[in-house]
């Protein structure tokens, strides 16, 4: 096998290489999870822009708690939901660096709602990457603020009922209303085309930071095969049919 592969590994045949910003550590994400792709895209954008030496990432509590093991940049690990406040402290004191928070739905839209809204409202010059899979993956599949109506989780085993559990929070739409945000978009990473679009969105967000344009929010609607109890293929299909209906993809604001 190796003998047949090796001869074709030549520079002229190379169409893809792992980003130098990505470390060799084995990712802890489950098979079919979207996080790995989003981590990779951020690494590629950082490499493409040549900002590896000046970027500081803020990791959340949740599935991406160990994101700092995958990207070869400086990181701070925040407490649950507080990444936007931590990012504020970093960016205000080191305005010449690139700062991004990387957060899931529980982190950004439940426990950290106040920090999220106020960082955006101040127009903190940061990038917020929001991975929305509608469930708490790390803790074992509990209901998230973005869990869809009727969707089952370990804390709403018979499905989310708005009358009891409240409604799924469209926080990204809310953030787009704030004058402090300059670019707010919702993307996905389940097809080659959507991956390219998300990379473009991330690039624009980091370019905005260079231009001091305020907060850029990139939501990525994501799958959680483990939490949803589906195969990765089923999860992609379920996401397209159900998540996209409630969380439509596209730019909400681009100023």
């Amino acid at each position: 096998m190796i003998d047949t592969v090796n001869p074709i590994i030549a520079p002229e045949n190379l169409i893809y290489a792992k980003s130098e910003v990505l470390l060799d550590n084995i990712m802890h994400y489950c098979p079919g999870c979207s996080h790995g792709v989003v981590n990779k895209l951020i690494a590629e954008v950082i490499e493409d822009m040549g900002i590896q030496q000046t970027t500081i990432g803020i990791a959340p509590v949740g599935c991406a708690v160990f994101a700092y093991n995958y990207l070869d940049i400086d990181w701070q690990e925040a407490s649950h939901g507080r990444a936007p406040a931590v990012a504020t402290g970093v960016k205000r004191l080191l305005p010449d660096t690139f700062v991004f928070s990387y957060q899931g739905d529980g982190d950004l839209a439940a426990i950290g709602t106040a920090e999220t809204i106020h960082a955006c409202n101040r127009g903190e010059n940061i990038v917020m990457v929001f991975v929305n899979n509608g469930i708490y993956g790390m803790t074992g599949g509990q209901m998230a603020p973005t869990t869809l109506p009727g969707m089952q989780s370990s804390t709403c085993p018979f499905g989310r009922e708005a009358s009891r559990d409240g409604h799924p929070l469209k926080i990204t739409e809310l953030l787009a209303q704030l004058p402090g945000t300059s670019y707010v978009t919702r993307q996905a990473v389940h097809t080659a085309a959507s991956v390219r679009k998300t990379k473009k969105a991330l690039r624009l967000a980091f370019e905005n930071q260079k231009l001091n344009k305020g907060t850029s929010v990139i939501e990525v609607v994501a799958t959680c095969s483990s939490g949803w109890k589906m195969t990765p293929v089923q999860a992609n299909k379920w996401m397209e049919e159900n998540m996209f209906a409630y969380y439509p993809l596209g730019d909400m604001k681009n100023e």
Partner: peptide
């Protein structure tokens, strides 16, 4: 909030 203040302190202190 004070929650945000102390976490901004965390961010700055980390730098």
């Amino acid at each position: 909030s004070e929650i945000a203040s102390i976490n901004m302190v965390y961010g700055g202190a980390g730098c």
